[in-house]
Design a protein around this nucleic acid. Structure first.
Length: 434
RNA sequence: GCUGGGUUGGCAGAGUAGCAAUCGCAUCUGGCUGUAGACCAGACGUCCGAAAGGGCUCCGGGGGUGCAAUUCCCUCACCCAGCA
């Protein structure tokens, strides 16, 4: 029912182009999965996604469990039908296109330990977001971690939200919608994912904080592994491919152990975690991938900045998902290619709200063939963002998702044409050691 | 013309006889990686400085009282309301 095959390997890296056969059509890899947490990629329709070339969309079990409820979606024919997703244009099917659900494991972290009040200062001394995953400092540089000041009314209100509480068997979540209390464990997550009915599902995992020491991380990994086996045991449907999740933070031996474990028990593998630097991410990939068998699809959870896509593919990753294109798109941070000023240093983006674009009549990324770039100027986009018009978010998201999905498509084609190294060098520069 | 109320950053609008400028809006900049974020953070009189810092200003104009006035008093200008 599911079959992954490698079609072409790059000669000087672990990059590979492949195909994953699913009950609702084949997915060509490497591929970037747009994130549609609540059964919608914010501001984009399923038809937009098909036009863009997305082959699969990812939703979140936790969010849909809370609202509208997994029973509701089951009654309405499952996730794909519910959101009108028929898959990419080339494989359009009235039965619905390929879908994926995340287990809610990430929310154990993002609604749990990540809720601790942590404030960071960046290199210029500016305070950074207190709530983002990226708020966590590199454990090696703990000096930049500051105690949070919790004085403002806003923060007092935020304090009312209780952090999720982890036990050995599962997690008590406090709904971010209404504060109600919900129990989640491997059984609940897998049953919910079976009701949602996505083709690809993820084992329920515990997510370590990058701030944790070795022993605490090990305890978390052991919990992840117990939940992994429980997830497999809970699975009743045979028409869903379950990914196991590798954890172990930035500790090499834990990653080795976890990768070995995950590959042993699961038909598909994914790598989870939060990374305090791109070097840590590259290390983790190098530690994990050698343990994965060739014929299992590999998903790098939550990752997807431009640089990471190249480095991930070069290290043998097949699937990515990331909120960056949509979040940046809504915030006016729009992707540009190297020929138009895109560099690692600016994350291959421009901030369209900057005053210097007020009279700029170029498209966001000259040469981009997306709907936004075909019809609208930077000056117009800037106006829409500054005026807080809804179309700004849609056009920004459309461009960003198009840009990333099609960049990964180009990466795939370059592997097939044996030109991956040239493409990577064109984007990241030749000096980068891979 | 009379009476009353007012004049504080780009805008709006608090405040006070003792280091002026709370909270907004606008503007500018930075951040965003399995979505608690159409969000968050910083700057926003001027000058020097990469920064840490430091210098000089400033509550409509003028005058008065006070150790000290943006604040109290007088006066002028302008705005608003009511009455002529």
């Amino acid at each position: 029912m599911f079959h992954f095959s490698v079609l072409q390997k790059d000669k000087s890296s672990k990059a590979r182009a492949g195909r994953l056969a699913t009950p609702h059509g084949d997915i060509l890899t490497p591929h970037f999965n747009p994130v549609g947490t609540q059964a919608t990629v914010k501001t984009l329709s399923s038809q937009d996604l098909a036009t863009i070339g997305a082959q699969i969309v990812l939703s979140n079990t936790y969010h849909l469990f809370l609202r509208p409820g997994v029973d509701t979606i089951e009654k309405l024919g499952g996730l794909a039908k519910f959101q009108g997703w028929n898959g990419p244009v080339s494989t359009s099917s009235i039965r619905g296109g390929p879908t994926m659900t995340d287990s809610g494991g990430f929310q154990v972290f993002s609604l749990g330990v990540a809720q601790k009040k942590v404030t960071l200062k960046d290199s210029q001394g500016r305070k950074m977001s207190k709530f983002s995953k990226s708020v966590f400092s590199d454990p090696i540089e703990k000096s930049i971690l500051l105690p949070a000041v919790t004085k403002t009314t806003e923060e007092k209100q935020l304090n009312k939200l209780r952090a999720a509480k982890i036990s050995e068997d599962g997690v008590w979540f406090y709904s971010h919608i209404d504060g109600s209390k919900h129990w989640f464990d491997a059984d609940v997550s897998i049953q919910a994912q079976e009701k949602l009915g996505a083709d690809l599902i993820v084992a329920f995992d515990d997510h370590e904080s990058p701030l944790w020491d070795y022993q605490t991380t090990r305890v978390s990994l052991e919990r992840t592994n117990r939940w992994a086996l429980a997830s497999l045991a809970a699975q009743k449907r045979q028409d869903q491919l379950m990914y196991g999740v590798v954890h172990g933070g930035y500790y090499e031996d834990l990653r080795h152990e976890s990768a070995k474990f995950t590959d042993k028990y699961f038909p598909a593998v994914s790598i989870g975690g939060s990374y305090t630097s791109k070097q840590v991410l590259r290390n983790v990939l190098d530690w994990c991938v050698p343990y994965f068998q060739d014929d299992k699809p590999r998903h790098l959870l939550g990752i997807g900045e431009v640089e990471d896509l190249f480095e991930g593919v070069a290290r043998g990753i097949d699937f990515f998902d990331c909120v960056a294109p949509t979040r940046r798109g809504r915030h006016g941070n729009l992707y540009i290619s190297p020929g138009n000023g895109g560099r690692k240093e600016n994350n291959f983006t421009i901030q369209i709200t900057n005053a210097k674009y007020a009279l700029d009549q170029d498209p966001i990324d000259p040469g981009c063939e997306c709907l936004t770039c075909q019809h609208y100027t930077r000056a117009y986009l800037r106006h829409l963002f500054v005026a807080d018009e809804l179309l700004a978010q849609r056009l920004g998201s459309y461009h960003n998702v198009y840009f990333i999905v099609n960049l990964v498509k180009r990466i795939r084609e370059s592997i097939l044409q044996e030109s991956f190294q040239q493409l990577k060098a064109e984007w990241l520069g030749r000096l980068r050691a891979s």
